[in-house]
Nucleic acid binder design. Sequence first.
DNA 1: CGGTATCCTTTCGGATACTG
DNA 2: CAGTATCCGAAAGGATACCG
Lengths: 118, 118
Amino acid sequence: MDSGCAVYNASNLVGKKWTLVILLELYKGEEKWKRYNQIKSKMPTLTPKMLSTRLKELEREGVIQKRVDSTTIPIKSEYSLTKRGEEFIDIIKQIKLWTLKYKDFKRCKNQDCKSCTF
Amino acid sequence: MDSGCAVYNASNLVGKKWTLVILLELYKGEEKWKRYNQIKSKMPTLTPKMLSTRLKELEREGVIQKRVDSTTIPIKSEYSLTKRGEEFIDIIKQIKLWTLKYKDFKRCKNQDCKSCTF
DNA sequence: CGGTATCCTTTCGGATACTG
DNA sequence: CAGTATCCGAAAGGATACCG
């Protein structure tokens, strides 16, 4: 096992806490671009540092993209899935199906967890 | 987001270090059941504690199963994927394909990493 | 609004030695 | 052979306060 191993590397990206649910959050809804606080408001227990860290990782890995409108006050930052990120959503869906097949998860009904909604 | 979220839970399992490659190791080859040291020998940098910890987690989650033959000396412990685990291999394959599609990983050629071989 | 900075706790995981 | 016990350092992640 070494750092050139694709599977090993992938697990280092997608296995990080919050990563999968952040990606799902970006996937959900109609609008493609979502703002920092828009994402954060959906996950009340996620700290700003964590969200910031994950967004940077995901951007660096080419899974999401960022655009900034600095002409407005306050500045508007928005994030969206890249093509690569959208393709990964399919994998997340399968992970969810696999989990639900064998475990008896109740659907998340509270407003804090919209992440399980496809 | 809470502990009842299927996706969140799944990421806590499959995202742990070594988990994916251990599962792959169990998948590879012809024989279904594999012994502790057989697995370990394929991953020289994996410590016995880690392997032991991961195997227990995976067993508890129903992804692998264990059988022990205590009539022999020394005792023979063997592990194999459950149905659930085998189904997860498909997901790992897709993760690998997704990774390779956008990243230029060389195939792992050294004998320490057979994990990327499907 | 969209983050940083700082501090602190917890968890992860590696090294090594040992045991039934 | 198949682990467990102990110890330790590093890294991840949470709480909170603050800033342009």
